[in-house]
Design a protein around this nucleic acid. Sequence first.
DNA 1: GATTATTATTAGCTAAACCTAAATTTATGT
DNA 2: ACATAAATTTAGGTTTAGCTAATAATAATC
Lengths: 228, 228
Amino acid sequence: MPGTETTRPLSSSIGDYLKAIWALAGTGSASTTEVSGHLSVAPASVTNMLGRLQEMGLVRYERYRGASLTGRGREEALRLVRRHRLIESFLLGHLGYSWQEVHDEAERLEHAVSDEFTERLAELLGHPAHDPHGDPIPAADGTLEPDDSLPLGEAGVGGRVRISKVSDESIPVLDYLGERGLVPGRLLIIREVRHLDGVVTVEDEGGETHALGGPLTRAVFVREEAAG
Amino acid sequence: MPGTETTRPLSSSIGDYLKAIWALAGTGSASTTEVSGHLSVAPASVTNMLGRLQEMGLVRYERYRGASLTGRGREEALRLVRRHRLIESFLLGHLGYSWQEVHDEAERLEHAVSDEFTERLAELLGHPAHDPHGDPIPAADGTLEPDDSLPLGEAGVGGRVRISKVSDESIPVLDYLGERGLVPGRLLIIREVRHLDGVVTVEDEGGETHALGGPLTRAVFVREEAAG
DNA sequence: GATTATTATTAGCTAAACCTAAATTTATGT
DNA sequence: ACATAAATTTAGGTTTAGCTAATAATAATC
Ligand SMILES: [Mn+2]
Ligand SMILES: [Mn+2]
Ligand SMILES: [Mn+2]
Ligand SMILES: [Mn+2]
Protein backbone atom coordinates (compact mmCIF):
# COMPACT_ATOMS: atom_id res chain seq x y z
CA MET A 1 0.00 0.00 0.00
CA PRO A 2 2.10 2.95 -1.15
CA GLY A 3 1.17 6.36 0.20
CA THR A 4 0.10 4.89 3.52
CA GLU A 5 3.19 6.00 5.49
CA THR A 6 1.60 7.52 8.58
CA THR A 7 2.80 11.12 8.46
CA ARG A 8 3.17 11.96 12.15
CA PRO A 9 2.84 15.62 13.03
CA LEU A 10 5.92 17.78 12.66
CA SER A 11 7.64 18.87 15.87
CA SER A 12 7.42 22.44 17.09
CA SER A 13 11.15 22.92 16.43
CA ILE A 14 10.70 21.93 12.83
CA GLY A 15 7.78 24.29 12.53
CA ASP A 16 9.78 27.17 13.91
CA TYR A 17 12.61 26.54 11.44
CA LEU A 18 10.16 26.55 8.53
CA LYS A 19 8.54 29.74 9.76
CA ALA A 20 11.97 31.32 10.18
CA ILE A 21 12.99 30.54 6.61
CA TRP A 22 9.65 31.81 5.37
CA ALA A 23 9.93 35.03 7.39
CA LEU A 24 13.54 35.64 6.40
CA ALA A 25 13.45 34.67 2.76
CA GLY A 26 9.86 34.06 1.66
CA THR A 27 10.27 32.23 -1.61
CA GLY A 28 14.05 32.85 -1.71
CA SER A 29 16.71 31.21 0.43
CA ALA A 30 17.98 31.89 3.92
CA SER A 31 21.54 31.39 5.18
CA THR A 32 22.62 29.39 8.20
CA THR A 33 23.53 32.53 10.18
CA GLU A 34 20.27 34.22 9.37
CA VAL A 35 18.27 31.27 10.67
CA SER A 36 20.63 30.94 13.62
CA GLY A 37 20.07 34.57 14.56
CA HIS A 38 16.32 34.45 14.07
CA LEU A 39 15.86 31.40 16.28
CA SER A 40 18.71 32.00 18.75
CA VAL A 41 20.15 28.60 18.01
CA ALA A 42 23.86 27.88 17.36
CA PRO A 43 24.90 27.81 13.67
CA ALA A 44 26.07 24.22 13.99
CA SER A 45 22.61 23.18 15.17
CA VAL A 46 21.04 24.94 12.21
CA THR A 47 23.31 23.15 9.74
CA ASN A 48 22.23 19.89 11.27
CA MET A 49 18.53 20.69 11.19
CA LEU A 50 18.63 21.95 7.60
CA GLY A 51 20.03 18.58 6.60
CA ARG A 52 17.16 16.83 8.30
CA LEU A 53 14.55 19.14 6.78
CA GLN A 54 16.02 18.38 3.36
CA GLU A 55 15.67 14.63 4.01
CA MET A 56 12.06 15.22 4.93
CA GLY A 57 11.42 17.12 1.72
CA LEU A 58 10.52 20.34 3.49
CA VAL A 59 13.49 22.34 2.30
CA ARG A 60 15.96 22.55 -0.55
CA TYR A 61 19.42 22.85 0.96
CA GLU A 62 22.88 23.14 -0.54
CA ARG A 63 25.93 23.15 1.70
CA TYR A 64 27.31 26.67 2.21
CA ARG A 65 24.46 27.99 0.09
CA GLY A 66 21.47 28.23 2.40
CA ALA A 67 18.01 26.71 2.30
CA SER A 68 14.68 27.50 0.64
CA LEU A 69 11.24 26.06 1.29
CA THR A 70 9.72 23.35 -0.88
CA GLY A 71 6.00 23.38 -1.55
CA ARG A 72 5.34 21.20 1.47
CA GLY A 73 7.64 23.31 3.62
CA ARG A 74 5.91 26.50 2.65
CA GLU A 75 2.52 24.93 3.20
CA GLU A 76 3.45 23.92 6.72
CA ALA A 77 4.96 27.34 7.47
CA LEU A 78 1.79 29.08 6.36
CA ARG A 79 -0.37 26.74 8.36
CA LEU A 80 1.55 27.83 11.44
CA VAL A 81 1.44 31.49 10.48
CA ARG A 82 -2.32 31.23 10.09
CA ARG A 83 -2.61 29.71 13.54
CA HIS A 84 -0.26 32.23 15.06
CA ARG A 85 -2.13 35.23 13.72
CA LEU A 86 -5.58 33.91 14.56
CA ILE A 87 -4.43 33.15 18.09
CA GLU A 88 -3.00 36.65 18.45
CA SER A 89 -6.32 38.09 17.32
CA PHE A 90 -8.16 35.98 19.88
CA LEU A 91 -5.84 36.91 22.73
CA LEU A 92 -6.31 40.59 22.02
CA GLY A 93 -9.97 40.56 21.18
CA HIS A 94 -11.37 38.06 23.68
CA LEU A 95 -8.88 37.68 26.50
CA GLY A 96 -7.84 41.29 26.93
CA TYR A 97 -4.17 40.79 26.20
CA SER A 98 -2.19 43.86 25.16
CA TRP A 99 -0.66 44.35 21.78
CA GLN A 100 2.78 43.55 23.17
CA GLU A 101 1.89 40.38 25.03
CA VAL A 102 0.18 38.39 22.32
CA HIS A 103 3.22 37.31 20.35
CA ASP A 104 4.96 35.07 22.92
CA GLU A 105 1.80 33.26 23.88
CA ALA A 106 0.92 32.63 20.24
CA GLU A 107 4.45 31.40 19.55
CA ARG A 108 3.80 28.45 21.88
CA LEU A 109 0.12 27.86 21.21
CA GLU A 110 0.53 27.69 17.45
CA HIS A 111 2.19 24.28 17.93
CA ALA A 112 -0.40 22.87 20.31
CA VAL A 113 -3.72 23.65 18.65
CA SER A 114 -5.32 21.35 16.09
CA ASP A 115 -6.68 22.30 12.68
CA GLU A 116 -10.11 21.77 14.16
CA PHE A 117 -9.38 24.33 16.88
CA THR A 118 -7.93 26.76 14.39
CA GLU A 119 -10.94 26.73 12.10
CA ARG A 120 -13.43 26.99 14.92
CA LEU A 121 -11.45 29.91 16.28
CA ALA A 122 -11.48 31.60 12.88
CA GLU A 123 -15.23 31.17 12.88
CA LEU A 124 -15.57 32.68 16.37
CA LEU A 125 -13.46 35.66 15.30
CA GLY A 126 -15.46 36.20 12.11
CA HIS A 127 -12.63 35.20 9.76
CA PRO A 128 -10.46 38.29 10.19
CA ALA A 129 -8.14 39.23 7.32
CA HIS A 130 -5.40 40.74 9.47
CA ASP A 131 -3.88 40.11 12.87
CA PRO A 132 -3.47 42.82 15.54
CA HIS A 133 -0.10 43.90 14.10
CA GLY A 134 -1.63 44.30 10.68
CA ASP A 135 -0.13 41.14 9.22
CA PRO A 136 -2.38 39.33 6.75
CA ILE A 137 -3.77 35.99 7.92
CA PRO A 138 -3.20 33.16 5.41
CA ALA A 139 -6.40 31.46 4.28
CA ALA A 140 -7.17 27.89 5.34
CA ASP A 141 -6.22 26.71 1.84
CA GLY A 142 -2.75 28.24 2.14
CA THR A 143 -3.39 31.35 0.05
CA LEU A 144 -1.77 34.54 1.28
CA GLU A 145 -2.66 38.02 0.16
CA PRO A 146 0.39 39.66 -1.46
CA ASP A 147 1.77 42.49 0.62
CA ASP A 148 2.53 45.73 -1.21
CA SER A 149 3.33 47.86 1.82
CA LEU A 150 6.79 49.25 2.41
CA PRO A 151 8.89 50.22 5.43
CA LEU A 152 8.40 53.80 6.55
CA GLY A 153 12.11 54.37 5.97
CA GLU A 154 11.63 53.84 2.24
CA ALA A 155 8.59 56.04 1.78
CA GLY A 156 8.97 59.34 -0.07
CA VAL A 157 8.84 62.69 1.67
CA GLY A 158 5.64 64.74 1.47
CA GLY A 159 3.39 61.72 0.97
CA ARG A 160 0.30 60.79 2.94
CA VAL A 161 0.59 57.20 4.10
CA ARG A 162 -1.41 54.82 6.26
CA ILE A 163 0.23 52.40 8.68
CA SER A 164 -0.56 48.94 7.35
CA LYS A 165 1.41 46.86 9.83
CA VAL A 166 4.03 46.90 12.54
CA SER A 167 6.72 44.30 13.05
CA ASP A 168 5.96 42.12 16.06
CA GLU A 169 9.60 41.16 16.66
CA SER A 170 10.55 43.58 19.42
CA ILE A 171 8.47 44.26 22.52
CA PRO A 172 10.13 47.61 23.36
CA VAL A 173 9.41 48.77 19.83
CA LEU A 174 5.76 47.70 20.12
CA ASP A 175 5.55 49.44 23.47
CA TYR A 176 6.87 52.67 22.08
CA LEU A 177 4.67 52.65 19.00
CA GLY A 178 1.58 51.59 20.93
CA GLU A 179 1.92 54.39 23.45
CA ARG A 180 2.08 56.96 20.67
CA GLY A 181 -0.80 55.51 18.73
CA LEU A 182 1.38 54.51 15.82
CA VAL A 183 -0.73 51.44 15.07
CA PRO A 184 -2.16 49.86 11.92
CA GLY A 185 -4.83 52.09 10.38
CA ARG A 186 -3.22 55.37 11.46
CA LEU A 187 -2.79 58.08 8.82
CA LEU A 188 0.56 59.90 8.63
CA ILE A 189 2.14 62.69 6.64
CA ILE A 190 5.86 62.32 6.04
CA ARG A 191 7.52 65.63 6.90
CA GLU A 192 11.20 64.77 6.55
CA VAL A 193 13.39 61.86 5.48
CA ARG A 194 16.95 62.57 6.60
CA HIS A 195 19.27 60.27 4.70
CA LEU A 196 22.24 61.18 6.90
CA ASP A 197 20.99 59.17 9.89
CA GLY A 198 17.83 57.56 8.53
CA VAL A 199 15.56 59.54 10.82
CA VAL A 200 12.05 60.01 9.43
CA THR A 201 9.77 62.70 10.81
CA VAL A 202 6.04 62.16 10.48
CA GLU A 203 2.92 64.01 11.56
CA ASP A 204 -0.09 62.05 12.74
CA GLU A 205 -3.80 62.77 12.47
CA GLY A 206 -3.76 64.61 15.79
CA GLY A 207 -1.06 66.97 14.60
CA GLU A 208 1.65 65.33 16.73
CA THR A 209 5.07 64.92 15.11
CA HIS A 210 7.31 61.91 15.67
CA ALA A 211 10.99 61.62 14.73
CA LEU A 212 11.75 57.93 14.24
CA GLY A 213 15.21 56.36 13.89
CA GLY A 214 16.27 53.36 11.82
CA PRO A 215 14.98 50.54 14.04
CA LEU A 216 11.57 52.20 14.22
CA THR A 217 11.29 53.12 10.54
CA ARG A 218 12.13 49.51 9.71
CA ALA A 219 9.39 48.25 12.04
CA VAL A 220 6.56 50.42 10.69
CA PHE A 221 5.10 49.52 7.31
CA VAL A 222 2.89 51.86 5.31
CA ARG A 223 0.87 52.12 2.13
CA GLU A 224 0.41 55.29 0.14
CA GLU A 225 -2.95 56.84 0.72
CA ALA A 226 -5.09 58.08 -2.13
CA ALA A 227 -5.20 61.89 -1.89
CA GLY A 228 -7.94 63.11 0.45
CA MET B 1 22.38 34.08 46.29
CA PRO B 2 20.44 31.03 47.48
CA GLY B 3 16.95 30.61 46.13
CA THR B 4 17.90 32.13 42.83
CA GLU B 5 18.11 28.86 40.88
CA THR B 6 16.09 29.65 37.77
CA THR B 7 13.29 27.12 37.88
CA ARG B 8 12.66 26.43 34.21
CA PRO B 9 9.17 25.23 33.33
CA LEU B 10 8.48 21.53 33.70
CA SER B 11 8.14 19.52 30.49
CA SER B 12 4.78 18.26 29.32
CA SER B 13 5.89 14.67 29.94
CA ILE B 14 6.66 15.46 33.54
CA GLY B 15 3.32 17.17 33.90
CA ASP B 16 1.49 14.15 32.52
CA TYR B 17 3.27 11.82 34.97
CA LEU B 18 2.31 14.04 37.90
CA LYS B 19 -1.29 14.20 36.71
CA ALA B 20 -1.33 10.42 36.30
CA ILE B 21 -0.14 9.81 39.85
CA TRP B 22 -2.67 12.31 41.13
CA ALA B 23 -5.51 10.74 39.15
CA LEU B 24 -4.54 7.18 40.13
CA ALA B 25 -3.64 7.68 43.75
CA GLY B 26 -4.55 11.17 44.87
CA THR B 27 -2.65 11.55 48.10
CA GLY B 28 -1.65 7.87 48.19
CA SER B 29 0.92 6.13 46.02
CA ALA B 30 0.78 4.68 42.50
CA SER B 31 2.70 1.69 41.20
CA THR B 32 4.91 1.53 38.14
CA THR B 33 2.41 -0.59 36.21
CA GLU B 34 -0.48 1.67 37.08
CA VAL B 35 1.34 4.71 35.76
CA SER B 36 2.58 2.70 32.80
CA GLY B 37 -0.98 1.70 31.91
CA HIS B 38 -2.42 5.18 32.42
CA LEU B 39 0.13 6.87 30.19
CA SER B 40 0.71 4.04 27.69
CA VAL B 41 4.42 4.14 28.37
CA ALA B 42 6.62 1.06 28.97
CA PRO B 43 7.18 0.13 32.64
CA ALA B 44 10.93 0.56 32.28
CA SER B 45 10.41 4.13 31.10
CA VAL B 46 8.22 4.84 34.09
CA THR B 47 10.85 3.53 36.52
CA ASN B 48 13.34 5.86 34.95
CA MET B 49 11.07 8.88 35.08
CA LEU B 50 10.02 8.26 38.68
CA GLY B 51 13.69 8.38 39.62
CA ARG B 52 14.06 11.73 37.92
CA LEU B 53 10.90 13.12 39.49
CA GLN B 54 12.24 12.08 42.88
CA GLU B 55 15.51 13.97 42.19
CA MET B 56 13.44 17.01 41.32
CA GLY B 57 11.52 16.79 44.58
CA LEU B 58 8.18 16.28 42.85
CA VAL B 59 7.61 12.75 44.04
CA ARG B 60 8.51 10.38 46.89
CA TYR B 61 9.66 7.15 45.32
CA GLU B 62 10.90 3.90 46.77
CA ARG B 63 12.14 1.13 44.50
CA TYR B 64 9.53 -1.58 43.98
CA ARG B 65 7.14 0.39 46.16
CA GLY B 66 5.58 3.04 43.95
CA ALA B 67 5.52 6.83 44.06
CA SER B 68 3.43 9.50 45.77
CA LEU B 69 3.31 13.22 45.12
CA THR B 70 5.17 15.73 47.27
CA GLY B 71 3.61 19.11 47.99
CA ARG B 72 5.28 20.61 44.95
CA GLY B 73 4.28 17.65 42.81
CA ARG B 74 0.66 17.90 43.82
CA GLU B 75 0.69 21.65 43.28
CA GLU B 76 1.94 21.23 39.74
CA ALA B 77 -0.56 18.44 39.02
CA LEU B 78 -3.45 20.60 40.17
CA ARG B 79 -2.22 23.55 38.16
CA LEU B 80 -2.46 21.36 35.07
CA VAL B 81 -5.83 19.95 36.06
CA ARG B 82 -7.14 23.48 36.48
CA ARG B 83 -5.91 24.40 33.03
CA HIS B 84 -7.26 21.22 31.52
CA ARG B 85 -10.75 21.68 32.88
CA LEU B 86 -10.97 25.37 32.08
CA ILE B 87 -9.84 24.67 28.53
CA GLU B 88 -12.45 21.92 28.18
CA SER B 89 -15.11 24.36 29.34
CA PHE B 90 -13.97 26.91 26.80
CA LEU B 91 -13.90 24.44 23.94
CA LEU B 92 -17.44 23.34 24.67
CA GLY B 93 -18.91 26.71 25.55
CA HIS B 94 -17.23 29.00 23.04
CA LEU B 95 -15.89 26.91 20.18
CA GLY B 96 -18.76 24.49 19.76
CA TYR B 97 -16.80 21.33 20.46
CA SER B 98 -18.76 18.29 21.49
CA TRP B 99 -18.58 16.68 24.86
CA GLN B 100 -16.46 13.87 23.46
CA GLU B 101 -13.94 15.98 21.58
CA VAL B 102 -12.78 18.35 24.28
CA HIS B 103 -10.52 16.00 26.22
CA ASP B 104 -7.81 15.35 23.64
CA GLU B 105 -7.45 18.98 22.67
CA ALA B 106 -7.21 20.00 26.32
CA GLU B 107 -4.61 17.29 26.96
CA ARG B 108 -2.23 19.10 24.62
CA LEU B 109 -3.18 22.69 25.31
CA GLU B 110 -2.83 22.38 29.08
CA HIS B 111 0.96 22.27 28.56
CA ALA B 112 1.15 25.21 26.20
CA VAL B 113 -0.90 27.91 27.88
CA SER B 114 0.57 30.31 30.44
CA ASP B 115 -0.81 31.14 33.89
CA GLU B 116 -1.76 34.49 32.42
CA PHE B 117 -3.81 32.79 29.73
CA THR B 118 -5.42 30.45 32.22
CA GLU B 119 -6.59 33.19 34.54
CA ARG B 120 -7.87 35.37 31.73
CA LEU B 121 -9.75 32.39 30.37
CA ALA B 122 -11.26 31.69 33.79
CA GLU B 123 -12.41 35.30 33.83
CA LEU B 124 -13.97 35.00 30.36
CA LEU B 125 -15.82 31.87 31.42
CA GLY B 126 -17.08 33.43 34.63
CA HIS B 127 -14.99 31.25 36.94
CA PRO B 128 -16.92 28.00 36.51
CA ALA B 129 -16.79 25.50 39.37
CA HIS B 130 -17.07 22.37 37.21
CA ASP B 131 -15.91 21.28 33.77
CA PRO B 132 -18.26 19.81 31.15
CA HIS B 133 -17.82 16.31 32.54
CA GLY B 134 -18.78 17.51 36.00
CA ASP B 135 -15.25 17.42 37.42
CA PRO B 136 -14.52 20.19 39.90
CA ILE B 137 -12.05 22.84 38.71
CA PRO B 138 -9.22 23.46 41.19
CA ALA B 139 -8.97 27.09 42.33
CA ALA B 140 -6.04 29.26 41.26
CA ASP B 141 -4.53 28.85 44.74
CA GLY B 142 -4.49 25.05 44.43
CA THR B 143 -7.56 24.35 46.54
CA LEU B 144 -9.83 21.58 45.33
CA GLU B 145 -13.37 20.94 46.47
CA PRO B 146 -13.59 17.47 48.06
CA ASP B 147 -15.64 15.06 45.98
CA ASP B 148 -18.28 13.06 47.81
CA SER B 149 -19.92 11.50 44.79
CA LEU B 150 -19.81 7.76 44.20
CA PRO B 151 -19.88 5.48 41.16
CA LEU B 152 -23.37 4.47 40.08
CA GLY B 153 -22.36 0.87 40.65
CA GLU B 154 -22.04 1.49 44.36
CA ALA B 155 -25.30 3.35 44.85
CA GLY B 156 -28.14 1.68 46.73
CA VAL B 157 -31.27 0.46 44.98
CA GLY B 158 -34.41 2.54 45.21
CA GLY B 159 -32.59 5.82 45.73
CA ARG B 160 -32.99 9.03 43.78
CA VAL B 161 -29.61 10.23 42.60
CA ARG B 162 -28.28 13.03 40.44
CA ILE B 163 -25.41 12.52 38.01
CA SER B 164 -22.54 14.64 39.33
CA LYS B 165 -19.88 13.69 36.81
CA VAL B 166 -18.87 11.31 34.08
CA SER B 167 -15.39 9.91 33.53
CA ASP B 168 -13.75 11.50 30.50
CA GLU B 169 -11.40 8.57 29.87
CA SER B 170 -13.26 6.75 27.12
CA ILE B 171 -14.75 8.38 24.05
CA PRO B 172 -17.14 5.51 23.20
CA VAL B 173 -18.48 5.67 26.75
CA LEU B 174 -18.98 9.44 26.49
CA ASP B 175 -20.69 8.95 23.15
CA TYR B 176 -23.09 6.42 24.54
CA LEU B 177 -23.96 8.43 27.63
CA GLY B 178 -24.24 11.70 25.75
CA GLU B 179 -26.68 10.25 23.22
CA ARG B 180 -28.96 9.08 26.01
CA GLY B 181 -28.79 12.28 27.99
CA LEU B 182 -26.96 10.68 30.88
CA VAL B 183 -25.00 13.85 31.61
CA PRO B 184 -24.10 15.76 34.78
CA GLY B 185 -27.18 17.28 36.36
CA ARG B 186 -29.55 14.48 35.28
CA LEU B 187 -31.81 12.99 37.92
CA LEU B 188 -32.13 9.19 38.10
CA ILE B 189 -34.04 6.60 40.07
CA ILE B 190 -32.18 3.35 40.65
CA ARG B 191 -34.54 0.49 39.80
CA GLU B 192 -32.25 -2.50 40.10
CA VAL B 193 -28.70 -3.36 41.13
CA ARG B 194 -27.90 -6.88 39.99
CA HIS B 195 -24.84 -8.08 41.84
CA LEU B 196 -24.49 -11.15 39.62
CA ASP B 197 -23.19 -9.20 36.62
CA GLY B 198 -22.99 -5.65 38.03
CA VAL B 199 -25.73 -4.36 35.75
CA VAL B 200 -27.58 -1.37 37.16
CA THR B 201 -30.98 -0.36 35.83
CA VAL B 202 -32.02 3.27 36.18
CA GLU B 203 -34.97 5.37 35.14
CA ASP B 204 -34.38 8.93 33.98
CA GLU B 205 -36.56 12.02 34.28
CA GLY B 206 -38.27 11.28 30.97
CA GLY B 207 -39.30 7.81 32.17
CA GLU B 208 -36.73 6.02 29.99
CA THR B 209 -34.94 3.06 31.57
CA HIS B 210 -31.31 2.22 30.99
CA ALA B 211 -29.52 -1.01 31.89
CA LEU B 212 -25.86 -0.22 32.37
CA GLY B 213 -22.99 -2.72 32.65
CA GLY B 214 -19.79 -2.49 34.70
CA PRO B 215 -17.76 -0.17 32.50
CA LEU B 216 -20.67 2.27 32.36
CA THR B 217 -21.60 2.14 36.03
CA ARG B 218 -17.96 2.82 36.86
CA ALA B 219 -17.94 5.86 34.55
CA VAL B 220 -21.05 7.55 35.92
CA PHE B 221 -20.80 9.23 39.32
CA VAL B 222 -23.81 10.29 41.34
CA ARG B 223 -24.84 12.01 44.54
CA GLU B 224 -27.90 11.13 46.57
CA GLU B 225 -30.68 13.57 46.01
CA ALA B 226 -32.66 15.01 48.91
CA ALA B 227 -36.19 13.62 48.67
CA GLY B 228 -38.40 15.67 46.35
C1' DG C 1 46.39 36.79 -6.04
C1' DA C 2 47.60 35.99 -1.34
C1' DT C 3 46.00 36.95 3.14
C1' DT C 4 42.62 37.62 6.39
C1' DA C 5 37.97 37.55 8.03
C1' DT C 6 33.55 35.61 7.93
C1' DT C 7 30.54 31.91 7.46
C1' DA C 8 29.52 27.22 7.59
C1' DT C 9 30.41 22.41 8.48
C1' DT C 10 32.23 18.48 11.02
C1' DA C 11 33.25 16.02 15.15
C1' DG C 12 32.18 14.82 19.49
C1' DC C 13 28.96 15.48 23.65
C1' DT C 14 24.68 16.10 26.46
C1' DA C 15 19.89 15.61 28.04
C1' DA C 16 15.13 14.24 27.68
C1' DA C 17 12.06 10.59 26.71
C1' DC C 18 11.15 6.97 24.97
C1' DC C 19 12.07 1.60 23.65
C1' DT C 20 13.25 -3.86 24.14
C1' DA C 21 15.33 -7.70 26.41
C1' DA C 22 17.43 -9.58 30.42
C1' DA C 23 17.86 -9.77 35.31
C1' DT C 24 15.97 -9.24 39.78
C1' DT C 25 12.71 -8.58 43.42
C1' DT C 26 8.31 -9.20 45.45
C1' DA C 27 4.02 -11.61 45.79
C1' DT C 28 1.23 -15.93 45.43
C1' DG C 29 -0.26 -20.62 45.69
C1' DT C 30 0.22 -25.03 47.33
C1' DA D 1 8.91 -23.04 52.66
C1' DC D 2 9.47 -23.20 47.68
C1' DA D 3 8.35 -22.80 43.18
C1' DT D 4 6.19 -20.09 40.01
C1' DA D 5 4.08 -15.88 38.43
C1' DA D 6 3.87 -10.99 38.28
C1' DA D 7 5.90 -6.62 38.87
C1' DT D 8 9.86 -3.89 38.66
C1' DT D 9 14.39 -2.54 37.70
C1' DT D 10 18.80 -2.67 35.07
C1' DA D 11 21.32 -2.66 30.89
C1' DG D 12 21.89 -1.13 26.56
C1' DG D 13 19.73 1.32 22.57
C1' DT D 14 17.37 5.18 19.70
C1' DT D 15 15.74 9.79 18.24
C1' DT D 16 15.32 14.70 18.69
C1' DA D 17 17.37 18.85 19.43
C1' DG D 18 20.44 21.25 21.24
C1' DC D 19 25.73 22.63 22.62
C1' DT D 20 31.16 23.74 22.02
C1' DA D 21 35.54 23.48 19.74
C1' DA D 22 38.04 22.53 15.73
C1' DT D 23 38.24 22.61 10.78
C1' DA D 24 37.13 23.90 6.18
C1' DA D 25 35.06 26.75 2.62
C1' DT D 26 33.76 31.16 0.86
C1' DA D 27 34.05 36.10 0.69
C1' DA D 28 36.47 40.40 1.36
C1' DT D 29 40.62 43.18 1.50
C1' DC D 30 44.98 44.79 0.46
MN1 LIG E 1 6.60 28.80 17.62
MN1 LIG F 1 1.43 39.30 14.71
MN1 LIG G 1 -1.34 16.37 28.85
MN1 LIG H 1 -13.03 16.77 31.91
